[in-house]
Amino acid sequence: METENTIQGTIRNPKRTENVIEIRGLHMSFGSNRVLKDFNFVLHKGENVVVLGKSGSGKSVLIKCIIGLLSPDSGSIYVFGRNIPELSQAELDSIRIRVGFLFQSNALYDSMTVRENLEFPLRRHRLNLNKEQVNELVMEMLENVGLPYTVNMMPSELSGGMKKRIALARTLILKPDIILYDEPTTGLDPITGREISELMLQLQKKYNTSSIIISHDMKCVEFIADRIVVLINGTAYAEGDFENLRLHKDPLVHSFFD
């Protein structure tokens, strides 16, 4: 289902495949502050969609609703055809294994080494793997992000960019079908930000994932987005590819690209 109240633009990757996420009429408020109002959205398989919006516009709330960290006031969020707000805890956990989440703060477990951080999801959800297989997977993911030598280091010993890469490796270790990125390049210098963007795209191609990316970094957005959704006043106000939205006549949309 496409959004009805959205200003449509052309989309760089117009190939339509199955919907992995479908949101209909999502409402979410905190007290009297209505953050999302009748929000509609679709993520297709293999697609990278960037959600743009001002600070406090509800972008992070949106992806937290998708993963079930927040319960919406009303509306439906179908992930792999299952409506998240209606699922039991066990059903939700089974969906969560297939959806990776990269936190803005990285959220590495700071009392664990890098190895233990990566092993943590495996030890809980891949019980059939022996010690050697776990080690192989950990090293494969660390090599993917170019940091195999950090395996025995603590998160406090890593730089901001390295933490982001390790967090990305941990997100990917269960080989999820969807990845939700919460401002993946915020707080990084432009060069590291570019490297992270390239890594995201490279890993997306390697593991054939679909992604929703929350970002303010327009270089990252231009580089990675197949489609951009502009979130204004709690609704998907405009939608299209980067060039299309950059040249958009509506000043509210255009202002993001100045």
Partner: peptide
Amino acid sequence: AELGSMKVTEQIDAMEVSGTN
């Protein structure tokens, strides 16, 4: 302090989204 720190740095949320209670 440990749980408080985990809460404010989203480590508890990270645990939850990885399918761990």
